[in-house]
Structure formats: structure tokens, C-alpha cells
Design a protein around this nucleic acid. Structure first.
Lengths: 205, 205
DNA sequence: CACATTCGAAACGGTACAGTTGCGTATCGA
DNA sequence: TCGATACGCAACTGTACCGTTTCGAATGTG
């Protein structure tokens, strides 16, 4: 396909600025190319606008017309990473924890999410707006959910009352992340369950 | 100081190639500059030979005479990161685990170590030799030590016999790493102890 | 149709760095 | 002292990318 018309079905008829509308398809191609290359581990610095334009099949002009800097583009790109977090389920705290861990396991196995997390951890000083967006978009919601889950467990007596919440949080998330980063997961289907059960029961007999 | 003589005390007198010997001081300055900049989070790609030469106070020639590529330099640089790992101590498994965690805590609080770990986790495909060296130099020895410790704990009955070693390893290391990366540590002196005790006892009552 | 705006493509000047070479000096062994 | 090698420094060519501009074609509105 060379050219097929596409528009951005503007709802308000008055806001139409006249002239050829911007191509939503080009915008999507740019953001997809950006996330793809980030997912391949291409550092933020070495990821050039020209490479993005080439991969997306658009001209550099089309990028610069929308974003004035590389970081602006990244911020918008990571904002499209929706954060489907299911765990409100009303089961036991153990079951909900396992559900959370399964989400983390899936994310940790996805190259794109992994690289975004890596950016969040390593580029905070050099790209504060981008990292802030990642926190707001992906990290904080998950953190809040696990925190609420832990508090509920303490309230119901399923978790010990003297739990250090910060350490418990790091234990759950850090174990999944570290395991997959070092062992490689191999998509163990029982991983989340085993981790939660082993942590609940404790390492000692 | 402009110039002060220094030599590389060659033991074997026959192997001396004649001519001015290479400056050990320059070599150290180059490697220090490299590790310093890596420790500041300057990605491998954007870390230029010219910047290293400028920071080390040497000419580019002096670098190219020793290393033919950037990766060769990095490999030698990380190889100088000694891995002081103390934990052979003959106390209880709990005490030895705490000693290990303290080492991990110290490392995770060191920007240089943190960035090297980040390289090991993210650049495996693009810099296999470098990452291999990091594994061999820093990761495997620690991993083996913790593994031996866990096995000893199982043998002595201090740890439950049905422990999943891979998960237990990830739990210990991942918790420290994740905690410090997200909470920032603030050099909590009791962190290692609290983590080990909470993990041994379990999250459930 | 005229008009406005966007599109992809190409070219441009400017900057940064790679990797090499030459220069004058410094430091070794013989 | 002489030859060999290393040193820091500067200059050089070549490449890659930046951010901008120009161009002809495409695509919308009125």
C-alpha cells in the first residue's frame, strides 16, 4: 500500500483547522517504531530521530512537526503503554497476590516493558519528565495496588501484623523481577504461586 | 604535576621490549575515568573515547595503543572491579545470610556497581564479551556463595528442605536490590537483618 | 475550483566523534 | 650518546546525526 486516506474523526466540527489533517497512521507508526526500538534495547541516547523515521516509514518533518524534542516523543510513547492491572478480585489475599505476581511475571517477560523499567531505574536524573511519566503511568498504580493488598492482608489477619510494608513490597516485586532477569523464567506457569507460597510460609521450617 | 616518571616493575628482565615503557599511571587514569563515567550513568554508547581521554588527561593515542575497541577497554575496566566477598564466616546460616545481604546492600548503594549491574542486565546481546566478564567477575562468585549458603542451611535444618533454591536466591538478592532501587535505602543499618528475618519467618503469621 | 496544511523525500550547514597521522618531547636500554 | 618506544597534543578525513528548509504531491475545507 502506498497511500490510503485516513483521518482523525474529529468530533467537534468547529475545531477543524482547515488544510490536510495530520495522519493518525503516521503518528501510530512513529510511536510504534519508537517503542519497538526501545524494546530492542536501543538506548535512549543512540536512538536517533532519523532511525525512527526510517523504521516508521515517514519523513523527519512529520516527527518534528509533532514533537519538538526526542524526550517529548518518548514521553508520549510510554504514555500509550496502557497498564491493565486486574487484581481487584475478591478472593483471598493469597490469591490476589498470586494474580498480581502473574501480571508482574508477564510484564517482566516482555522486552518492551523490561526496557521501559530499565529506563525508569537508570535515567531518572537525565530524563526526569520521561521517568516521571513512567512512574505515574506504570509504577505507581501497581505499587498502590500491592500496598492496599498487603494492608488488607494485615487487617484480615492473613498477614502478620508486624510486617514491614516496604520490605514486603520489595520482596514480592523484587523476587519476580530478579528471578526472570537471572533465570530467564521459561514461562514457568507455577512461578507466581510458588513465590507467594514460599514467601508466606517463610524460608525457615 | 606535569610529568613524573613511573614504570611497571617488570620482573623478568628478558621480556623488556626496549624503548620507553608504557605508563601504568596513564593506564590507571584511563580505566578510572571509564569507570567513573559509567558510574555516572553515561551509557556505553554515548561514552566516547575522546571524553575518556579528556577526563583521564591523556591523548587518544594512548588509549588506542592499548585497546583496539571501546568494548575491549570496558572489558578490562570491569575486570579491575575486585569482588571482595567476605561471607565464609562460620556463624549460623542466618548470620551469614545477613553478612551477604550487607555486601549486596553496600554494592547496591554504590553508583558504579549499580551501573555495571545495569549493563549486565541490559546489554547482554550487544556486548556479550563485556557482560560475560561481568558475570564471571562479579555475579557468579556471589551467586555461588549464596547458593552454598542456602544448601548448608538445608543440610543443617536451618532452612526448610523443600526450598526452591532458584526462588530463594531471587528472593534474597531481589529484595535488597529492589528495595534500594525503589526506596533509596538511606543506608538503613538494619535493612539486611530485617529482610533476612522477615523472609525466614515468612509473611504469614 | 482556490486555499491551507500535511505528506515523504532530499538537501543543507553544523556538530560530535571515530580512528589515523605527524610533531616535539620524555624515558627507557645499550 | 643513540635508537626505540611512549607520551600529550593538534590536525586531519570520514561518518553519523541534528534540526531546518525546500520541493512536488496528496488531502482536506469552502
Amino acid at each position: 500500500m502506498t497511500t490510503t486516506g485516513e483521518t482523525q474523526t474529529t468530533a467537534s466540527p468547529a475545531a477543524r483547522p482547515a488544510g490536510r489533517p495530520r495522519s493518525a497512521k503516521a503518528e501510530k507508526a512513529i510511536i510504534d517504531a519508537t517503542l519497538d526500538m526501545i524494546g530492542e534495547g536501543i538506548g535512549l541516547f543512540e536512538l536517533s530521530i532519523e532511525a525512527i523515521a526510517a523504521r516508521a516509514g515517514v519523513g523527519k518533518t512529520t516527527i518534528y512537526r509533532r514533537w519538538s524534542s526526542k524526550e517529548d516523543l518518548f514521553v508520549d510513547a510510554v504514555a500509550t503503554l496502557k497498564s491493565p492491572f486486574p487484581p481487584p478480585g475478591g478472593g483471598s489475599v493469597r490469591d490476589d497476590l498470586i494474580a498480581c505476581m502473574r501480571v508482574f511475571q508477564r510484564d517482566a517477560n516482555d522486552a518492551r516493558s523490561r526496557c521501559v523499567m530499565s529506563i525508569a531505574m537508570n535515567e531518572a536524573e537525565r530524563h526526569p519528565r520521561l521517568v516521571g511519566r513512567i512512574h505515574q503511568e506504570a509504577i505507581e498504580p501497581r505499587k498502590a495496588a500491592v500496598d492496599a493488598l498487603l494492608r488488607r492482608g494485615i487487617a484480615t489477619g492473613e498477614l502478620r501484623a508486624d510486617l514491614d510494608l516496604g520490605i514486603a513490597m520489595a520482596t514480592l516485586v523484587g523476587t519476580v523481577m530478579w528471578y526472570i532477569r537471572t533465570e530467564g523464567d521459561h514461562s514457568r506457569p507455577d512461578l507466581a504461586e510458588r513465590i507467594v507460597d514460599q514467601l508466606l510460609a517463610g524460608l525457615a521450617p
